[in-house]
Design a protein around this nucleic acid. Structure first.
Lengths: 202, 202
DNA sequence: AGATTGAATGATTTATTGATTATTCAGTGA
DNA sequence: TCACTGAATAATCAATAAATCATTCAATCT
């Protein structure tokens, strides 16, 4: 089992190099196999198919990111508002940089999300979980006032959808996207309704 | 000039029929010309190209929709909240139905928005204008409390982006999309911050 | 027996070719 | 001179052939 795992790792590593050098579609299973000094057929004892290798790479990479997000969301001593800011901005920046500068990463993201739509859902669910615990925490601290935490987390994700796949929507630059996300966050946190009885002092 | 206009209309009408029957890509300029009893070359005295005919059709159609939206946004006697609801829901439903059931309309929308991205921006700007006047009205009535009206309108559009191209994002059904839009609207209007000093009565 | 190979298979991609079609413009007729 | 035509052009698309590649599996090795 430990042996099997190390072979899996070897395969993933070889594929990682190939994919990031030449792209997903331009690397063949035969090449990956050769890099691992094995026959192409043998790869299939470790992975059901090529896409699954890509998914393994993506999962590994994404898990690190998730850990980071969890830390941001739980940062002690920070107001919930600031933590939510950090959380959403980190996501925007990560995907932006990842997809903007690296066409290979972009290709992989595209392939995985079209061939394996559940993967994108899984990511969303993970992030929603983080959001939920952040909200609960904020409620306990009296910073937010939310009835249905799960629903609210879902709605926050809805409202920030544009920033999750930045280059799909608009060719906006990162600074512009950041300014917009800032605005949406403010809107979501403060809302449109008047806080106090309202009319401004004369 | 009045003659030129009537020829333009004739061309647009012929193209409208062809496009909606056979689709944009399957109708040829020669066919449209024949329908108008003219030579293909002559079409170019009235439109710079095929895409511009499609754009003219889309503009005409969209203008009617805009009028409707303006009416909804200005409906007398309704609270701003309800008018905003009507506005955003009408947009969701329109695009959903238009694109869901009619593959020809979908093709045209796709072609125009990829070849003429400024068209989509123009639509957004139009709707933002409506949103701005709705917001101003709501502020005057004391229903909303907003500092920067233009910025806020932009942010509302950002937050509801997902519902503007429903089928691009998710394969969600209309009822699910409606429930989500409902939630996002509530979030945007009420916000997360506590309205009153907050803690619930015992 | 279990692990591994690598040739065979069929699906997918790429290259090539031959239409089709948007667009232009020299020419025609009023 | 002006409105228009329709053949010429160039770009795009469809069809097909050729090659590549993911995947399978009978045979081989350890």
């Amino acid at each position: 089992m430990v042996v099997k795992d190390s072979v899996r790792c070897q395969i993933v590593d070889a594929a990682k190099k190939r994919f990031s050098h030449f792209g997903y579609s331009k690397t063949t299973m035969a090449e990956v196999a050769t890099d691992c000094s094995m026959s192409p057929g043998n790869l299939y004892r470790f992975f059901p198919g090529k896409l699954d290798i890509a998914e393994a790479i993506a999962t590994e990479d994404y898990s690190k990111h998730l850990d980071h997000l969890r830390k941001l969301a739980a940062a002690p001593g920070k107001p919930a508002r600031a933590r939510m800011h950090d959380l959403l901005f980190e996501e925007l920046r990560r995907t932006y940089h990842k997809l903007e500068k690296d066409p290979r990463a972009f290709e992989m993201a595209r392939v995985i999300s079209t061939e394996r739509p559940e993967f994108a859902n899984w990511m969303l669910a993970n992030e929603r979980e983080i959001l939920v615990s952040l909200l609960k925490d904020a409620i306990a601290l009296g910073e937010f006032n939310v009835e249905d935490v799960d629903l609210t987390a879902e709605m926050i994700q809805s409202a920030t959808m544009k920033f999750r796949y930045p280059q799909l929507w608009s060719k906006l630059s990162l600074p512009k996207l950041e300014r917009e996300l800032e605005g949406v966050m403010k809107l979501v946190i403060d809302g449109l309704s008047p806080r106090k009885p309202c009319p401004p002092a004369p």
